[in-house]
Design a protein around this nucleic acid. Sequence first.
DNA 1: TTTTCCATGTAACTCGTTACATGATTTC
DNA 2: GAAATCATGTAACGAGTTACATGGAAAA
Lengths: 180, 180
Amino acid sequence: MHRQLLLLGLLRREDMHGYRLNEFIERDMAFCTDIKKPTAYYLLDRLADEGYLAEVDDPEPADGRPPRKTFGITPEGERRFAELLRQNLQAVDAPTFPVDMSIAFLDALPPGEALALLHAREAALRARLESIRETPGHRSGALRLVVDHHITYLECELDWLAEVIAWVETQDADQEGPST
Amino acid sequence: MHRQLLLLGLLRREDMHGYRLNEFIERDMAFCTDIKKPTAYYLLDRLADEGYLAEVDDPEPADGRPPRKTFGITPEGERRFAELLRQNLQAVDAPTFPVDMSIAFLDALPPGEALALLHAREAALRARLESIRETPGHRSGALRLVVDHHITYLECELDWLAEVIAWVETQDADQEGPST
DNA sequence: TTTTCCATGTAACTCGTTACATGATTTC
DNA sequence: GAAATCATGTAACGAGTTACATGGAAAA
């Protein structure tokens, strides 16, 4: 559903063909969406079938290039967009973190190995945080807020991971015995 | 994949039949997993087919009750469990937040309505945070860490939401004109 | 001359959900 | 007598992904 919203939202700003759309999404939105090319093409056709998009004439057809299907949003599409926007903004999704399942059974691992894996995870999260911080563009406008969302989230993940690591370390110490 | 891990992890502690397993998951793990009953039954059979689980005799068959299939983990299941645990702990998933798509197009909404929706969202998040804070049990052990994960996450969501609200408010003020 | 770019798709598949089916037994 | 509890499942569906297909043009 947020995928439809994305496509409608982008086409609301400018008519585009699938290839350009996918290019833009890959370059500028990859950090916040996971829509894949075939899905985008499929959804474009479906949204057009449903009357939310309409195929328009290619404003600058390039010769010796495959023909392209340029889409524009229709008035019904605008209405649909607003509807999805409100729905999506109100929906409070309960996210699930796959890693939680590992944490729940962390005692099944030798503490040493657990710590090594957790530190590796920490490094990976830090790397991602850096790469998002260094992302060019998105310096202004609403997209900045989305970048901030991911930065805030990664920082919170790191805080929590530190807590997990501390916990494993105390477990480890307890196991060695406080008598040592 | 984290679903398999969950089932194997729980059956590692104690032999169980599907119904009890589902009961436990609904009562004590609903806040961190979204596995549904039919999925659990299906996965139990599949894991058994693959040799990771084995059907064992019901230790206390109740009379006048439907027969139940009690599963226990096999040595291969133990190995599989450890493998999934390591895999899952190392995998750094790039989460996508559906709400980001709304935020990216927030300017399409009248600022007043946007603020109302954002405040409603804030209230919903706060309610969830409270309900998790008041969750009984999970006070000790690894599950406590998982609860903390969700608390930390919701707090970070609230921080970020406040930032979004502030941004919309400045946008609104700018639009009214700094001359007023 | 092989690779990359442009541009669109399809077919098969995976994973999971929803809604429903069954049937005895206990509780209201 | 109706509803909830116990216990297991199936069938149909939906959303999305992967891998592949196509075919000309430009760049390496």
